[in-house]
Amino acid sequence: MGKKLKFLFFDCSEAATCCDKAQYEEANLFEKAKLRIHLALCKTCRKFSARNSRLTHLIKDSKLETCPEEKKKKWREEIKKEFAEERT
C-alpha cells in the first residue's frame, strides 16, 4: 500500500514533465529523485525517458542553429519592400 501511494503521488504526466525538464537540466534534485523512483516502477515512462534522451542527443548531434533575429528582421523588411515594388 505504501509503495502504491508513493507511485500514485507522482503520476506519469508529472514524471514526463520532470523528464522533459531534465533534458534541459532544469529538474531540481527533488524532482530528479522522484523521477528515478517513478522510472524504477513504470515501464512506459522508462521507454519514454529513453526516447526523450535519444532525441536530446540527436538534436545536439545535428548542430542546428537558428538565424539571429536581427537578420530575420532585415530580411523581412527587404522582402516586404521588394515585393511591394514588384507588384507596382
Binding site: E65, C67, K71, K72, W75, R76, I79
Partner: peptide, 30 residues
C-alpha cells in the same frame, strides 16, 4: 511575406554545412 518566418532557419542550416561561414551564409540567403 512569410518566407523569413517559415524558411530562414531551414535555408540557413542548409547553407552553413555547405559554406561553413555565417556571414557568407547570411548573404547568400539574402
Amino acid at each position: 511575406n512569410k518566407w523569413v518566418d517559415k524558411y530562414s532557419d531551414y535555408l540557413f542550416n542548409y547553407t552553413i554545412v555547405r559554406v561553413n561561414n555565417r556571414e557568407v551564409a547570411n548573404d547568400l540567403i539574402s
